[in-house]
């Protein structure tokens, strides 16, 4: 057991770090409940203007649609991405040989070029396929990412080979081993990956802004950008929008953190 002093130090450290981390969230919350002019004056106490801010937000912007679009896009993208990348990462590691390692190294370069440079060629590609304004064009570039493949590749390294061998003797096909053995065992990795992919999908801004041009496809980050664009910015309303935009990722994280931090210790035998 830890000594009292050490324990105190540890809690103090974590508490300070946590407070620093959530301060902006607190600021956002306060701002969302205050009038624009108070926000700009730096008021740090919750106010009573929340309802008014909310009313002007929904009068100005289609909040429901943006939330729904963001949820749907992020959800579908997360599921597809996890499926494609985890099976590839598994393939790269479990069946690794010289050829696959080389391919993997080449793949890694795909994440190393700034997006601003490939955006135009990418747009040209999708427009020549008549796919502008489609969900597919929005999603395809983010389904398979070297980053996620690498994450699963690195995680597969701790997946015991005996399990695979045992399953093969039991007559399971290679695909079945992946779905029935790897998939449930690596719950913590999936949960962590899910958080990250969901967050990235949720916050994605530049590409959807260019490829999805109809009003119907507005997402939360676009909505927030709209609140910022006028000659005068209503800071109370803006911060309420930002606050609403932040909450879902926080909830997803809070729900998943148990699975990836206290998940399945001991399940791998």
């Amino acid at each position: 057991m830890m000594s009292k002093g050490k324990k105190f130090f540890m809690y103090a450290f974590l508490t300070i770090f946590s407070l620093l981390s959530i301060f902006p969230l607190y600021y956002m919350f306060c701002a969302a409940t205050n009038k624009s002019i108070d926000v700009i004056a730096g008021k740090l106490i919750p106010g009573t203007y929340l309802i008014e801010n909310y009313k002007s937000l929904i009068a100005n912007q289609n909040l429901g649609l943006a939330l729904w679009n963001s949820f749907r896009n992020s959800f579908i993208l997360t599921v597809l991405c996890l499926l494609v990348c985890s099976i590839a990462g598994y393939g790269f590691e479990i069946y690794h040989d010289k050829g696959k390692d080389a391919v993997f190294t080449v793949l890694l370069t795909a994440m190393m070029i700034p997006f601003a440079a490939v955006m135009i060629p990418m747009f040209r590609m999708f427009s020549s396929l008549n796919m502008v304004n489609t969900m597919a064009a929005f999603m395809l570039p983010s389904i398979s990412t070297p980053f996620m493949i690498m994450m699963f590749r690195q995680a597969s390294r701790s997946f015991p080979h005996d399990i695979i061998e045992a399953a093969r003797i039991d007559g399971l096909s290679e695909l079945a081993i992946f779905f029935r053995m790897f998939f449930p065992t690596m719950r913590s990795t999936y949960a962590a990956a899910m958080t990250i992919v969901f967050m990235n999908a949720w916050n994605n801004y530049l590409w959807p802004k260019v490829i999805l041009m109809t009003n119907e496809s507005i997402t939360m980050p676009m909505l927030v950008a709209n609140l910022l664009g006028g000659y005068t910015v209503d800071y109370g309303m803006l911060m309420l929008g930002v606050f609403i935009c932040t909450i879902p990722t926080a909830i997803v994280f809070f729900c998943l953190q148990k699975s990836f931090a206290e998940g399945i210790t001991g399940a791998v035998k």
């Binding site: 679009n69 796919m131 304004n133 489609t134 969900m135 597919a136 999805l212 109809t214 119907e216 507005i218």
Partner: peptide, 18 residues
Amino acid sequence: SMTACGGGSGASGDSGSG
């Protein structure tokens, strides 16, 4: 996702209509 991809191709009415 497949139907969503297919639906949008010709028309610009995006699948996000609700």
